[in-house]
Design a protein around this nucleic acid. Structure first.
Lengths: 158, 158
DNA sequence: ACTTGACTTCAAGTCGACTTGAAGTAATAG
DNA sequence: CTATTACTTCAAGTCGACTTGAAGTCAAGT
């Protein structure tokens, strides 16, 4: 049992962020001491899990769904698997990109625009541009109302 | 010489986005026909270049600096090189992550939290969390005033 | 001469993940 | 018994990259 400042200290996460995470249901406090939130120490693990998920490209919303509000966070294997595949594709793209960039640095074609490697790169970018996913997102909080659309997909993030 | 709707059609980029790009100085129109913007056809190349840059993790601000307002976009080799290195690091991270995720799917440790691979992963995430860059950003437009701080670094995007 | 349709500007909204600031409260130190 | 300090809430701001909407303008077609 620790309070928010200690959790903050131990996790390296600012208190505001912790409050935010609680607000959106990613973590929960087990009670209060006066006004002060009191957490169980195992939220530390959960926080690591969340940080990991973020690096892997999960959104907080996804993670809330995955981790559930369960005591023992049980991980959805299908979701993880899908994400791994997504990562894999992204890695391939980035690798092509990296090699392309490296090439650009050393390439001595009169102009990059005439260099075939560069042109292949540009085609990659175009392709990406073309396939923009259209999905419905449910808001994390209900704080700000309004209802238009922008359909950022997983592909944008990973 | 083409007008915006044709540029939009040919590039697959919505007109609003093209106007925005012009507003922030990424592309420029060579004149007007009435109110209508008129572009030179070679902005198409520039737009590909921009798309490419985005995939590579450049921000629009960076690209404005790199591409300059020059006719022949000359590319800054140092910047590209740096970006390639950044990409490289990111690729390594993502690879570790992907392998880790794959492992998680098949791992039969009683709980993921006890699995050493998983714990190594979590350490990666923690490390990332720890090193948050602090840099000054100049705003792209002067549209919305205000001056607090949030220091998203390149690392967040790539 | 007028309508139409495609453009124009400008301000404001959107999204996710937070941070910031003002105003309030409550456990502890003296 | 009051300060102090550390928390609390809630609304609003931030960032980048755009999109949306209202209101205006203009060239071309009838």
């Amino acid at each position: 049992m620790i309070d928010i400042s200690e959790l903050s200290r131990k996790s390296g996460i600012p208190a505001s962020k912790l409050r935010y995470y609680e607000e959106v249901g990613l973590i929960r406090s087990v009670g209060r001491n006066g006004l002060r939130r009191v957490f169980e120490t195992d939220v530390l693990t959960r926080l690591s899990l969340i940080a990991l998920g973020q690096v892997a490209g999960f959104s907080l919303t996804e993670m809330r769904e995955m981790l559930g509000s369960e005591r023992q966070p049980e991980i959805d294997r299908d979701m993880v698997s899908t994400k791994a595949d997504l990562l894999d594709r992204r890695i391939k793209e980035l690798t092509a990109l990296r090699d392309g960039l490296r090439h650009v640095v050393t390439c001595e074609a009169p102009s990059h625009l005439e260099c075939p490697t560069f042109q292949r790169l540009m085609r990659i970018a175009q392709t990406r541009q073309a396939m923009r996913g259209r999905e419905q997102k449910k808001p994390l909080t209900g704080r700000k109302e309004g209802g238009a659309n922008r359909k950022a997909s997983l592909l944008d993030r990973i």
